[in-house]
């Protein structure tokens, strides 16, 4: 029988974890919770949990994949807690939010313009990403949570509803709000001057 490659059933030395994986875990967390301090705490909690559960590391996946799966659970827990705290203080915003975004007869108050071709070059992608970071930071918590879970992690609707304890209809409304809010912000911060071309301004429904 051919010899099996040696599988690593134990973790590496925990003293090396921070240097080997700290930045990767931190980036993962910061992108999702949008706060450096919280992200640092989550990384620490993750590595601590990993240390305490070293025996459960099966070696089937890479060590980093294992850390990330722990971190992912910590992030979802964090969002779940935040969502509960927030809901106690501010009631879920209702449809009136949209009243400011749409004028009479449901027309856009500030119509989308300037968006064209969806094939972004690497340079454009970098700029878009910087603008998106800025705009995502500005989202109110309820929308930031759905942005993180849905757009970044592509989590399905059912799971998100459970995490946030909301109904699907409520989730869809939030996702819609999040998307139109990002659109407005990105038109200013990414499209910038391109937006105000006379040809684009004329177009209407």
């Amino acid at each position: 029988m051919p010899e099996q490659p040696a599988t690593n059933l134990t973790t590496s030395d925990p003293a090396t974890w921070v240097d080997a994986h700290g930045d990767i875990l931190f980036r993962y967390a910061v992108k999702r919770v949008r706060d450096r301090e919280t992200a640092e705490e989550l990384v620490q909690e993750t590595l601590l949990a990993a240390l305490q559960n070293r025996d459960s590391f099966s070696g089937k996946s890479a060590e980093q994949t294992w850390f990330i799966s722990i971190l992912r659970n910590k992030i979802v827990d964090h969002i779940r807690k935040r969502a509960r705290e927030r809901d106690r203080f501010e009631p879920t915003p209702d449809e009136t939010y949209f009243d400011a975004k749409f004028a009479k007869k449901g027309k856009w108050s500030d119509a989308p313009v300037g968006w064209s071709g969806s094939n972004l070059s690497p340079d454009e992608l970098r700029e878009f990403r910087a603008a998106l970071d800025l705009c995502a930071d500005k989202l109110p918590p309820a929308l930031a949570h759905v942005f993180s879970l849905r757009e970044l992690d592509q989590m399905d609707s059912d799971s998100i509803c459970k995490v946030l304890s909301i109904t699907p209809t409520n989730l869809w409304t939030r996702l819609h709000r999040m998307r139109i809010t990002l659109r407005e912000c990105l038109e200013v911060h990414w499209l910038g001057d391109a937006k105000t071309t006379p040809a684009a301004a004329k177009e209407g429904c």
């Binding site: 119509a111 968006w115 969806s118 972004l120 139109i180 990002l182 659109r183 177009e203 209407g204 429904c205």
Partner: peptide, 17 residues
């Protein structure tokens, strides 16, 4: 037209994400 632009924005957003 504006809603076509919005549809395009959603496509771009998804692609970038």
């Amino acid at each position: 037209g504006p809603c076509r632009k919005y549809a395009l924005f959603l496509l771009i957003l998804r692609d970038v994400m």
